[in-house]
C-alpha cells in the first residue's frame, strides 16, 4: 500500500496555528483536491507533506515511510510550489540536468514531448519566461521526473485554459499509466471538480471533511419548492444548511440522502419541489457559511 497517511499533523508559525491535528488518508493512484479558505493551511499542509516543513506533532508517511529528511522517499515526490523557483540565470535545459541529477527516473522522452506540447524552448533563459511559461516549465520538469507523488500548489493559476486542459490530460495519463498520486491545492474549485476524485476541505487550520467527490455531491442538495407562507423548513426534520425565501419560492440547501429528501418533500405541504445538484463551489460556500465564513458577514 503506497497511500499517503497524515496523522495528527500540527504546525504553528509563532503563535499562529496553521494546521491543527490534521489526519488524512490519500489513496494511491488518486487525484486528491485540497480546498479551503484563504489561510486555511493548504500550502502549509503540502509543504509538510513534501518534507519542507517539520510538523510539531504527527507524521506524514508514504507507504509507511516517514518523509522527513528521507532522501530515498523524496526521490519519488515532486512539490510544485505556487511560486516557481529556478536556479539563477538557468535555461530549462540546465534545469533538466539539475533535476536529472536528483531524480533517477527522470525521463528525457517525456521531457522532450512536454516541451513540444507546451511549445517551450529549452535553450531560453527561464528568467525571460512569462509567469505562465514559468509554470509550464515547472510542470514539464515535474512530469519528466516521473514522481510517484506529485504535490501541486495552485498549479492551475497562471495557465491559460488550453494549457490547463493539457496539464489535466497529462496528469490523468500519468495517473492511469503508472499510478501516480496527485495532490492539488487550489482555489479554483471548477478545476478541482473536473479532475479530482477525492477532496478535503480545510478551514482555519482544521480539516472540515475529506470525502470522495461523488459521495460529497450525493450528500448535499439544493431544493427549490413552491409553498405557502406558513411553510416551516425546520419542521421537515432534515439537516437544512441554508434557507432562502422569495415570495412563495423557497430555496433550501439540505444535507442528506437524495431519496430521503425527496420522500420528505413528497409528504410535505408543498405545491411543487425540485432537487438540483450542487456544484463544488456551492458546496464550498455552504460549508463555509455553516462555519460563519459568509460574505454577508464580511460586508
Amino acid at each position: 500500500m503506497l497511500k499517503i497517511e497524515l496523522k495528527n499533523i500540527t504546525k504553528h508559525f509563532g503563535e499562529i496555528c496553521s494546521l491543527n491535528a490534521i489526519s488524512l488518508d490519500i489513496e494511491h493512484g488518486s487525484i486528491f483536491g485540497l480546498i479551503g479558505s484563504n489561510g486555511s493551511g493548504k500550502s502549509t499542509l503540502l509543504r509538510v507533506m513534501s518534507g519542507i516543513f517539520r510538523p510539531e506533532s504527527g507524521s506524514v508517511r508514504y507507504g509507511g515511510e516517514d518523509v522527513w529528511e528521507n532522501a530515498a522517499l523524496k526521490r519519488e515526490i515532486i512539490y510544485l510550489s505556487d511560486e516557481q523557483y529556478f536556479l539563477p540565470a538557468c535555461t530549462l535545459g540546465e534545469m533538466r540536468n539539475f533535476y536529472a541529477g536528483f531524480y533517477p527516473k527522470f525521463d528525457n522522452d517525456i521531457y522532450c514531448r512536454c516541451c513540444d506540447l507546451f511549445g517551450i524552448d529549452e535553450r531560453r533563459k527561464i528568467s525571460t519566461f512569462s509567469k505562465g511559461m514559468k509554470k509550464q516549465a515547472a510542470v514539464i520538469l515535474a512530469l519528466a521526473a516521473m514522481p510517484t507523488y506529485l504535490l501541486c500548489d495552485e498549479t492551475f493559476d497562471g495557465l491559460d485554459p488550453v494549457m490547463r486542459q493539457l496539464f489535466k490530460r497529462l496528469l490523468a495519463d500519468a495517473v492511469a499509466e503508472r499510478g501516480m498520486t496527485v495532490v492539488i491545492a487550489s482555489h479554483n474549485l471548477g478545476e478541482i471538480e473536473d479532475i479530482c476524485d477525492h477532496i478535503a476541505l480545510l478551514h482555519r487550520s482544521d480539516l472540515i471533511f475529506s470525502r470522495e467527490i461523488d459521495a460529497l455531491r450525493q450528500s448535499i442538495h439544493t431544493v427549490q419548492a413552491v409553498c405557502d407562507e406558513s411553510f416551516d423548513p425546520a419542521a421537515l426534520g432534515l439537516d437544512v444548511v441554508r434557507t432562502t425565501r422569495r415570495g412563495s419560492m423557497v430555496t433550501l440547501v439540505i444535507r442528506g440522502e437524495r431519496e430521503v429528501i425527496e420522500k420528505t418533500f413528497t409528504n410535505a405541504d408543498v405545491k411543487f419541489f425540485e432537487l438540483i445538484p450542487l456544484t463544488l463551489e456551492e458546496i464550498f460556500i455552504s460549508e463555509m457559511e455553516e462555519r460563519g465564513y459568509d460574505y454577508s458577514n464580511l460586508i
Binding site: L2, G29, F102, V175, G179, M180
Partner: peptide, 24 residues
C-alpha cells in the same frame, strides 16, 4: 494502470550528490 513501487534505500539520508556538486 501499473502499480508503482517505492525505491527503498538502505540509506535514507543523502549527504552527497555528485551531479549537484558539479553543477554548483
Amino acid at each position: 494502470m501499473t502499480t508503482a513501487t517505492l525505491s527503498k534505500s538502505s540509506v535514507r539520508k543523502a549527504y552527497w550528490n555528485g551531479a549537484y556538486f558539479l553543477g554548483e
